[in-house]
Nucleic acid binder design. Structure first.
Lengths: 168, 168
DNA sequence: TTGAATGCAAAGGATTTGCAGAGGC
DNA sequence: GCCTCTGCAAATCCTTTGCATTCAA
């Protein structure tokens, strides 16, 4: 599943994901295990959105060198989120992860045809949400926004079997 | 679970949810069953966000007059969404429903402490998303936005057991 | 009458958990 | 050596499905 997305510049960050995760582990008395190192490597090998299954597909299978069990994958992804390395959101009922550490804030366009996520950034959106929150005396900690529709290339390509689309 | 939300005026609509659903059923050769009538009544009895379980809790239980089975509840909620009566979105991995027909478009603030949803409307947001979409030549069909944080009343009340909160 | 809808039971998919053994520190 | 972490298996949660029966039109 290829990703159609702009390449974003990295933010200047003090340290690598590895370093940051080490600090996280240290500060909590957690251990730097083989499995955590493997997962960190695979997760940061490419800048893509992925779910647990997609990650597991890329990992060595049982019996091979570097195998990590499914429960450990789930547990470790949660740790990465907790450590601020990954961001997690829901899409069609499953959990999707993306890089957080070192990448600027952004939101997504989601093509309901090809199911690709397209990143975009909008400073105006941030300002707008700040305004809305303050009007409600709401202390904002973050947001999740997905704009659904059909991407440019799917509009161009011939309309295939029309998929049933949510009425919104 | 009480809802803290502004009362929104209803949009001027041509017909009641019942009438609209009848038309929907007619147009598809579907039948107006006892169960569908019961569910429509319960769903539109109050303007609240709810999930399948919360709805089922309010319904008569097995053996009582007016009981509707769980599979039928799920099937019928999907029909309501399809008919444009309800809108569906995901929150913490489960499906949440809210009135759509007769209510203006809006988005939500979600309090991570009391777990209430607070509605807000922003025309500027709509305009902004139109702009973003057109910049990407994206044909927008809708969006899902949830702003997370702490609501006014939870900020005032004494901080209880600090819940673990997503880093965003 | 006749096909659509219901309820039951059971399956499904994603994610989580209890626990005994393995392994960082 | 202690205590965390892992893998296994099984459980959990939410939702969907197959099928025989019921029922609206």
């Amino acid at each position: 599943m290829s990703q159609q997305q702009k390449s974003f510049e990295r933010l200047p960050v003090a340290s690598s994901p590895e370093q940051r995760f080490d600090e996280y582990l240290q500060s909590r008395g957690m251990r730097n295990t083989e499995q955590r190192r493997i997962l960190l490597e695979y997760v940061f090998a490419e800048h893509e959105h992925f779910d647990a299954d997609q990650l597991i597909e890329r990992l060595p299978t049982k019996g091979e060198e570097g195998y990590v069990s499914r429960p450990t994958v789930y547990r470790t992804l949660a740790e990465f989120v907790d450590a601020g390395l990954l961001k997690k959101f829901e899409l069609d009922g499953r959990s999707v992860y993306e890089h957080d550490y070192g990448y600027p804030e952004h939101d997504h366009l989601y093509c309901e045809q090809c199911e690709n996520l397209i990143e975009f950034r909008s400073h105006e959106l941030t300002k707008l949400l700040e305004t809305v929150a303050s009007e409600h005396r709401f202390r904002r900690s973050g947001h999740k926004l997905i704009v659904k529709g059909i991407c440019e290339s799917c509009q161009k390509s011939r309309r295939r079997t029309r998929r049933r689309v949510d009425l919104i």
